[in-house]
């Protein structure tokens, strides 16, 4: 494809320049040492580099939280908004600028608590974007409060005798919403799998929901310790149509065959069952996309005025 065709189609690949990886790298990230967000950032930058996206065609939208600092460390456009509301902003961007590549980065408090209404509706709108849930099972930025995904019994500053309720499961919740089109889970400690997952999510036409299990060595050092240190405990969903990462699959975790078009099986597998399951739970690209359905061509000013003038005829006295 020539550059012109590319830019016309908005696919964002510019054959004239090859972008270096550094073209996507912003200032040094200020997360704590050992924070899982560092790896997620690096893998994301790598993906953009491999896809050779034009940095000006990419927008990272976030809410508020440690994880929501993400856009600042990219060298693309970014919108660091307010707590819980990344998805409405991302929806507004993609709805009116389908040529842009939109990524929404959220924390578990951000997405599953204060922004839960938007989360449910964004799944249903199925607007073409990558939604990354950086789930550390805790409120990180505000220093250790219980989040909806905090494991039951895990103490925090707001629930020092342990979280009272069973944790909310973002996967079953997402899979329960009508019109869900892409649901995957991956982890910061499995970079190859993380990469393959983000790549599949980026390529997916629709709302690609990726829950990324993210280690927070400061507040929840224990929640993913076993899973990260002993990958054999994890289960990897495998299928020809699924997400494939040889490195992760070699680590000795149980390989669970799963056809990602099977919604019922996906829901069953997403249920908590002890082991951490990584992989593509569900994908259906035939689901209607709100951004596509609502797409409007651009009208010139004169054209708009002409239509409006006719509209005035209807109200003429």
């Amino acid at each position: 494809m020539s550059t012109d065709v590319c830019s016309l189609l908005g696919c964002g690949i510019d054959e004239e320049h090859a972008y270096e990886q550094s073209a996507y790298e912003g200032p040094l990230a200020r997360w704590c040492p050992g924070c899982g967000d560092h790896m997620i950032l690096a893998v994301t930058q790598r993906l953009l580099f491999e896809e050779q996206l034009r940095p000006e065609q990419v927008v990272f939208v976030s809410g508020i939280g440690c994880s929501s600092r993400f856009p600042h460390y990219m060298k693309t456009y970014g919108f660091h908004g307010i707590h819980g509301r990344a998805l409405p902003v991302a929806t507004g961007i993609k709805l009116t600028r389908p040529d842009l590549h939109v990524f929404a980065v959220m924390g578990d408090g951000d997405c599953c608590s204060i922004g839960a209404a938007h989360w449910i509706h964004a799944i249903r709108y199925n607007v073409d974007m990558v939604a990354m849930l950086l789930d550390n099972n805790i409120y990180g930025l505000t220093k250790n409060q219980t989040s909806p995904t905090t494991p039951q019994g895990h103490p925090s500053n707001t629930q020092p005798r342990g979280s009272y309720l069973p944790a909310l499961n973002p996967l079953t919740a997402t899979l329960g919403v009508t019109n869900a089109s892409f649901v995957a889970q991956t982890a910061d400690w499995a970079p190859g799998h993380l990469h393959a997952t983000l790549e599949a999510a980026y390529r997916h036409k629709g709302f690609a929901f990726v829950r990324i299990l993210q280690r927070c060595p400061v507040w929840t050092p224990a929640v993913f310790r076993d899973a990260a240190q002993d990958p054999k405990r994890n289960e990897i969903l495998v299928d020809a149509k699924g997400i494939h990462d040889a490195d992760t699959e070699k680590l000795g975790g149980k390989l669970v065959p799963h056809d990602p078009s099977d919604l019922h099986a996906a829901r069953r597998l997403a249920e908590d069952g002890g082991a951490v399951r990584l992989g593509l739970f569900y994908r259906d690209e035939s689901k209607p996309r709100y951004d596509e359905t609502r797409h409007q061509r651009a009208f010139a000013a004169e054209e708009r005025i002409r239509v409006l003038d006719q509209e005035f005829d209807r109200y003429a006295v």
């Binding site: 919108f79 507004g92 009116t96």
Partner: peptide, 10 residues
């Protein structure tokens, strides 16, 4: 939020 997103996007 959507209105702000659209405006931010030009």
């Amino acid at each position: 939020g959507a209105a702000i997103g659209a405006s931010y996007a030009g």
